[in-house]
Design a binder for these strands. Structure first.
Length: 451
DNA sequence: ATAGGGTTAG
């Protein structure tokens, strides 16, 4: 168009920037940004929102933020653009911070802002902000809006408030496929497997056909139940329902995961091998399956094969590798995996650390375990302490257990399971000292029943 | 003519 001598206007830039967003074409987007300035259109609110969107969707959050901060008027759309981009890319806490900053300025969220924010609440389990948004929906009389209502179902199931989600679903006059899928996958995710399956049946009785998302939700329920035969039937159903026998990539990933959880590595491999395009999630679900079942040779072979196919390992890939090392007692392999991981620029997180601590604790190398904990910039959680505590038990080291126990109870997140581990320990060591600590931490009746 | 709902790996 430009070669034909036609200059771009506001509308051209809006569509051009949207294309860049869709393609994640940051370079081209930056070129368009420069042209926007040349054309003197940098004050146009629609163009500016599109620029914020383009940078954020290309993963350039700092640049998105820069454009946003310099806007002459930050309107509801530019705020929502930021919130949406954060929520879609795993920066859910940032999304909620933005929502609250916006509200502080006196701007009320509209239905689109609410939908994006509810997603962020669901992803972070932020029930209190989610409930406030629910109130906003009621105040704005948006209860009949399917986007708002379906987002509420999503948020409540992700936060574990299944009764509330069910209540909203039940009140709907005509739930659409997305409503059904939200409640089905929500129940499946929370382990309400039978209910998820029953709802899928009910949905089909009402004349709605299951789509890929429904299948993924149902496969998750089946995987949780390790119901191999049911999984086989679903696989057959998937196979017959799709055209030219090519299974959707996400459905295939759910199938691989289901077969692995049911212990059927051979079927998982079969589904995996038949896929023409494999993304890193499909690879990782197979690698994780190998790790869970303890197939270390297959795991390392598949890891090499994945790299040979040009796919980069991620933090999850390395976690699977470390898990296998941990179960097989391969300390040196674990160290080299950590090194390789750092070479890829991936920082070990608490779960990787737990594998290493587990390995060291297993072989009684507690001093080394503590040295690792001190060297890494991650604060140990009670999960790490539980791991060490378990090994204290195996090695009958009661003094260390006492120390570890005291470290752990200062963790705000510490859960009852930890006290069960400790009570098992104290009953074995028959130490009155532990009983006293348990009484003080856990209440007299609870600890006496545990002990 | 800018922003929006459900699905995959630990």
């Amino acid at each position: 168009m430009q070669r034909h001598g036609v200059s771009p206007n506001v509308v051209t830039f809006i569509y051009g920037l949207k294309a860049c967003s869709n393609l994640q074409a940051l370079d081209k987007g930056q070129e368009l940004h420069a042209e926007v300035i040349v054309e003197g259109l940098e004050d146009h609110p629609f163009v500016n929102s599109s620029l914020v969107d383009m940078y954020a969707r290309c993963g350039a959050f700092a640049e998105a933020r820069e454009v946003f901060d310099e806007l002459p008027h930050q309107d509801i759309v530019s705020w929502t653009t930021l919130i949406s981009a954060y929520a879609d890319n795993g920066h859910d806490k940032q999304a909620i911070i933005c929502l609250e900053a916006m509200q502080k300025l006196g701007i009320s969220p509209n239905v689109i802002t609410i939908v994006c924010s509810l997603k962020a609440c669901g992803n972070t389990g932020n029930l209190s902000v989610g409930k406030k948004l629910h109130m906003d929906i009621i105040v704005e009389q948006l209860e009949g809006n399917p986007f708002a209502t379906n987002s509420l179902i999503y948020m409540y199931t992700k936060c574990g408030s299944l009764d509330e989600a069910w209540h909203i679903f039940e009140e709907m006059h005509s739930p659409d496929i997305i409503s059904w899928n939200s409640i089905i996958s929500g129940f499946a995710e929370q382990g309400e497997n039978e209910r998820a399956l029953a709802l899928s049946k009910q949905m089909q009785e009402q004349g709605l056909l299951p789509d890929n998302t429904t299948l993924v939700g149902v496969l998750k329920a089946v995987a949780n139940m390790e119901a191999f035969e049911h999984g086989r039937r679903l696989h057959a159903q998937v196979f017959h329902s799709c055209e030219d026998q090519s299974i959707d990539l996400i459905v295939a990933t759910a199938l691989v995961d289901m077969y692995c959880k049911c212990g059927s590595i051979v079927y998982a491999q079969q589904v995996f091998n038949k896929m023409e395009t494999k993304d890193y999630v499909l690879w990782t679900s197979l690698l994780t399956g190998y790790a869970q079942q303890g197939y270390s040779d297959l795991l390392f072979q598949a890891y090499d094969s994945m790299k040979a196919h040009g796919l980069q390992p991620t933090a999850v890939t390395f976690l699977s590798l470390l898990n296998v090392c941990s179960h097989a007692g391969l300390i040196n392999s674990a160290y080299s995996i950590l090194e390789v991981m750092c070479g890829y620029g991936i920082e070990p997180d608490i779960k990787h650390l737990n594998c290493i601590v587990d390995l060291l604790g297993r072989s009684g190398q507690f001093f080394l375990a503590f040295a690792v904990l001190e060297r890494l910039p991650i604060k140990p959680t009670y999960i790490i302490w539980s791991t060490i505590l378990g090994h204290c038990r195996n090695h009958s080291i009661s003094e260390l257990a006492q120390y570890v126990f005291e470290c752990a109870v200062s963790d705000e997140e510490v859960e009852s399971a930890f006290f069960v581990v400790m009570s098992n320990l104290s009953s074995e060591f028959v130490s009155e000292e532990y009983e006293d600590v348990l009484h003080s931490c856990y209440g007299t009746s609870a600890s006496s029943s545990l002990l």
